[in-house]
C-alpha cells in the first residue's frame, strides 16, 4: 500500500510537470490548430533562463527569496523565445499546407537545442541547477512516504498556475477574446478582436507555464541539459492529447493521468518489461493508443474532427 501511495506521489509530481508543459500545446492548438512541436524547447529554455538569472544575479545565494526572481527570469526568456518564434516562423505559414508548420517546428526545435548547446557556457554537458532553501534538500517523510521538496514546489506551482489560468481565461477581456478566437477566428476578427495578438498571447501563456515547469524540472533533477525538452515535450504532448487537445482542463487532467500511469507502469508491470528501462516505451504506447482509439481525449477535444 505504501508502495502504491508512493507511486501516486511520484506520479503526481511527474504529472504536474507534464501538465505545466501540456497547457502550452493545448492553448496554441485550441486557437490556431497548430501542434507547436518546438514547445518542449521553450520548456528547456525556461530552465536555462532560470539558471542564467541565478548565475548572473545571485551566484552563491540559496535563500528562498531568489526563487521568484529565477522564475521571473525563466518566464521572460521563454516567453520571448515563443513570441519571436511565432512571429518569425509560424505566422507567415498560416494557411500553408499542414506539412509546412510541422517541418518548421522540427527546424526550430533543432535550432533552439543547438543554440543553447553552442552558446550557453558549459551547456555541452549537464549543468548543475542551484539548490534553493526550502524547495530543495532532504526529502520530507510523511507517514512512510518520501516526498521530495521540489515535488511540493512542482505540484504547488501547477495549482497556482491553474488558478491564475482559469482566472485569466474566464475573467479577463483577453481571455474571453481567446475563447472567441478559438471558437471561430473569422467571426472574432469581424467582431474587432485582434486575432494576431490573441495568438501571440496564447504562445506567451503556454511559454510562461512551460518556464515554470523548467524551473521545477531543474529543482527536481538538480541538473539540466539542452536535450531535456525533446522527451518532456513529447510526453507533455501525449498528456495534452490524453486530456483532449484544445481543452485546458484536459491538459491538466491528462498530465496528471500520464504521470501516474507512468509511475505505476514502472512499479507494477511485472517481469522484464517493467522497470524504468521501459517506462518511456509505455508512455509512447499510451500515446499511440490514445491517438488511435480516442483522439478526442479523455475530456473531449475542442476540435474533434478536422477533415
Amino acid at each position: 500500500m505504501t508502495e502504491f501511495l508512493q507511486q501516486i506521489v511520484n506520479g503526481l509530481t511527474l504529472g504536474s510537470l507534464y501538465a505545466l508543459i501540456a497547457v502550452g500545446y493545448t492553448v496554441v492548438y485550441g486557437i490556431v490548430q497548430l501542434i507547436n512541436f518546438a514547445h518542449g524547447e521553450v520548456f528547456m529554455i525556461g530552465a536555462f533562463g532560470a539558471l542564467a538569472t541565478w548565475t548572473v544575479l545571485f551566484k552563491g545565494q540559496h535563500g528562498l527569496w531568489v526563487l521568484p526572481i529565477m522564475v521571473l527570469g525563466a518566464v521572460i526568456v521563454s516567453v520571448l523565445t515563443a513570441v519571436v518564434m511565432e512571429r518569425i516562423a509560424y505566422r507567415p505559414l498560416r494557411g500553408a499546407p499542414r506539412l509546412a508548420p510541422l517541418i518548421t517546428a522540427i527546424g526550430i526545435s533543432i535550432f533552439l537545442q543547438e543554440a543553447v548547446r553552442l552558446f550557453y557556457p558549459g551547456a555541452k554537458s549537464k549543468l548543475t541547477f542551484p539548490e534553493i532553501e526550502v524547495v530543495s534538500g532532504t526529502a520530507l517523510q510523511v507517514g512512510g512516504l518520501t516526498i521530495q521538496r521540489a515535488a511540493v514546489f512542482t505540484v504547488g506551482a501547477l495549482a497556482v498556475s491553474a488558478v491564475l489560468l482559469w482566472f485569466f481565461v474566464n475573467r479577463t477581456r483577453l481571455g474571453q477574446g481567446m475563447q472567441a478566437v478559438s471558437q471561430d477566428p473569422d467571426t472574432a476578427q469581424l467582431m474587432g478582436i485582434n486575432v494576431n495578438r490573441i495568438i501571440v498571447i496564447a504562445f506567451a501563456l503556454g511559454a510562461a507555464l512551460a518556464a515554470v515547469g523548467g524551473v521545477a524540472q531543474g529543482l527536481l533533477n538538480s541538473n539540466i541539459d539542452f536535450r531535456m525538452g525533446f522527451l518532456a515535450g513529447l510526453k507533455a504532448f501525449t498528456a495534452a492529447v490524453l486530456g483532449g487537445i484544445g481543452n485546458i482542463q484536459g491538459a491538466i487532467v491528462g498530465g496528471l493521468t500520464l504521470g501516474i500511469a507512468e509511475s505505476m507502469a514502472t512499479q507494477f508491470i511485472p517481469g522484464q518489461f517493467g522497470g524504468s528501462a521501459w517506462k518511456d516505451v509505455w508512455a509512447f504506447v499510451l500515446l499511440i493508443l490514445v491517438l488511435v482509439f480516442r483522439p478526442q481525449g479523455l475530456l473531449g477535444a475542442r476540435v474533434v474532427d478536422r477533415a
Binding site: 501525449t238 492529447v241 518511456d280 499511440i288 491517438l291
Partner: peptide
C-alpha cells in the same frame, strides 16, 4: 490502426513509434 488518424497525429504516432523502436532495441 494509425492511418485512420489525420495528418499531424500520424506524424506524432510515427515519431512515437520510432522512439519505441529505439528504446526497445536498447532494452
Amino acid at each position: 490502426p494509425t492511418l485512420r488518424v489525420s495528418g499531424d497525429y500520424l506524424a506524432i504516432v510515427t515519431l512515437a513509434f520510432g522512439e519505441i523502436f529505439r528504446f526497445t532495441m536498447g532494452n
